[in-house]
Nucleic acid binder design. Sequence first.
DNA 1: TATGTTTATCGTAATATGACGATAAAGTCA
DNA 2: TGACTTTATCGTCATATTACGATAAACATA
Lengths: 112, 112
Amino acid sequence: MVTNKNKYNCCSESSSDDIAAVRAADAELATLAKALGHPVRVHILRVLSQKQSCICGEIVEHVDGLAQSTVSQHLKILKEAGLIRGEIEGTSVCYCINLNGLKRLRVLISNV
Amino acid sequence: MVTNKNKYNCCSESSSDDIAAVRAADAELATLAKALGHPVRVHILRVLSQKQSCICGEIVEHVDGLAQSTVSQHLKILKEAGLIRGEIEGTSVCYCINLNGLKRLRVLISNV
DNA sequence: TATGTTTATCGTAATATGACGATAAAGTCA
DNA sequence: TGACTTTATCGTCATATTACGATAAACATA
């Protein structure tokens, strides 16, 4: 059906810089999406979204049936992806949504 | 610190149906995000988005360096998540973006 | 019918993820 | 200081993912 690879001129106008930028966006979107790619992590985001902020122990209570260490792992993944932030308060850690990360994810998805 | 679990009244207004619906949305969003959680799959989506539609063999060419079987696996994951559709055309398969799936993902993320 | 083309699936190996309990680290408070 | 609380990290195991080559399935065509 399509015999000419440049039928849509999708390559001729792209510099290698453009390609690198798109590849970087691919990787960034994939990283963010992967972090969101587990129901428990989505649930944690929702809890933080509703409560504005939440200490780690409360999150563990909200995520029913999982060990504290498991929840801590999920929090780490969300934090490393830039979707949440954690602030130490005494012995506790107060987590909150990182709105910039969430916005970035929305922007990247809207650009697909 | 927090002794009353209903401090924010976040549960008292939720019926079990609501909770089930939110859990289902969590799972749906996680499934869609997980499918997007690999740079090659993001790239495939971008290719399909730019070219409107694309036969499998062309996608394999666009995803440089990966075996045809690997690309086929990625296509399967995207298809099962509802992010792309595939239509058989003779010996080829013509893939295109499933806009409904992409919209659904955007809606679910905007509701987090 | 026989041959070639295209794509999906199978089998397999390496690596990643998700879960747990145990424990370390860091702070609070008596 | 010593006991307690809270959270992160470690070690481990089971399972999932990613990649590959080989092959099967389905169609086109000589």
